[in-house]
């Protein structure tokens, strides 16, 4: 089993900011928009170098989405940024009509997704965003796993024509992927090959899955770990290849059990080859205030939870 190590911890939102910094220098059509959260989205380097290509929208997210859709007319590539809650649920109809149905080249870039936003509590901890966004026809949904991958994904989506939802977060987590990786939209990343159980993880849960793999190995269980950074379009080929080998599945996501990655994988399973699946996800509830680590523990989103789910899945084979 491949060992993953890290020398530093960083937040994925900083990976986004770094990606925007690069895009600012490389792509003159990229425009950044923000709804009064410039610091949280790490946009300062982009704004400093490209003040004319930054649009401060104030606290009016619906207007920001509409303006982004309009900016595409004339060839701009708008990156609309705010917290994930305000970037999705608050503006669902604006995204639906002006972006998705109109097929506009808007990149909706959302930080502070999931429970790990922490102390602000459930009003800000959106756990339904993947579901809402993946249900929109034509929307690409991406949830990268660490700083380097978020930076690479940010740069990659500028070259892709069409609406994208890019989801990332607030807490510092291990940086374990390559700094110079090429991000392929829709292509699952094989983290570790295995034979006993397939663990499909997305976002912050990928590192937890890697740790779970090590714990399982110590118990003689050989887990295959796959990073599903692109939830839509889903790499069905990679999913089927893996379950054909292992015969059981664990899905791990910082999202509601309903409507997220787990349900996307389950659709592949029921359409193709029935195998047991266990969900590691928030059990259809809202979050609450606490530290990210406390919340992940309380809501069952740790490496230990993945280990237990893997054992349940294997037992059901």
């Amino acid at each position: 089993m491949k060992k993953y190590t890290f020398t530093e911890k960083k937040d994925t939102r900083s990976g986004f900011g770094a990606g925007m910094h690069v895009l600012g220098q490389q792509n003159p059509n990229v425009v950044a928009l923000c709804a009064d959260l410039v610091g949280s989205l790490k946009l300062e380097p982009f704004i400093k170098e490209n003040p004319e290509r930054f649009v401060q929208c104030g606290i009016s997210e619906a207007n920001m989405i509409g303006i982004s859709a309009g900016l595409t007319i004339g060839g701009k590539i708008p990156f609309a940024t705010t917290f994930a809650n305000f970037a999705t649920g608050r503006v669902y109809d604006q995204i639906r009509q002006s972006v998705a149905y109109s097929n506009k080249n808007v990149k909706i870039c959302a930080s502070h997704a999931g429970l790990t936003l922490g102390e602000d509590g459930a009003t800000h901890q959106i756990l339904e965003d993947i579901g809402m966004m993946k249900m929109l026809p034509g929307m690409t949904v991406i949830n990268p796993c660490d700083y380097n991958q978020t930076k690479a994904a940010t740069i990659a989506i500028a070259d892709y024509e069409g609406p994208v939802y890019l989801r990332f977060g607030r807490p510092v987590i291990p940086v374990f992927t390559d700094a110079d990786q090429k991000f392929e939209i829709g292509k699952a990343w094989m983290v570790n090959e295995g034979t006993d159980v397939s663990i499909f993880a997305t976002g912050h849960m990928v590192w937890e899955a890697i740790q779970a793999g090590e714990l399982l190995e110590a118990e003689g269980i050989n887990a295959e770990i796959i990073n599903i950074h692109t939830i839509k379009p889903l790499d069905e080929e990679a999913v089927l290849k893996s379950i054909g080998k292992t015969g059981c599945v664990v899905t791990a996501e910082e999202h509601n059990r309903l409507g997220g990655l787990g349900d996307s994988i389950a659709q592949v399973i029921v359409k193709n080859k029935l195998v047991p699946q266990e969900y590691v996800a928030v059990n259809d509830s809202f979050g609450e205030s606490g530290t990210p680590a406390q919340l992940m523990e309380k809501y069952g989103l740790t490496a230990k939870d993945i280990v237990n789910a893997a054992k349940r899945a294997i037992a059901r084979k």
């Binding site: 920001m64 982004s68 859709a69």
Partner: peptide
Amino acid sequence: QGMSVAIGAALSKKL
């Protein structure tokens, strides 16, 4: 939604 879109298109023209 239309006025927001029109503003975006107007900004695009300025850029």
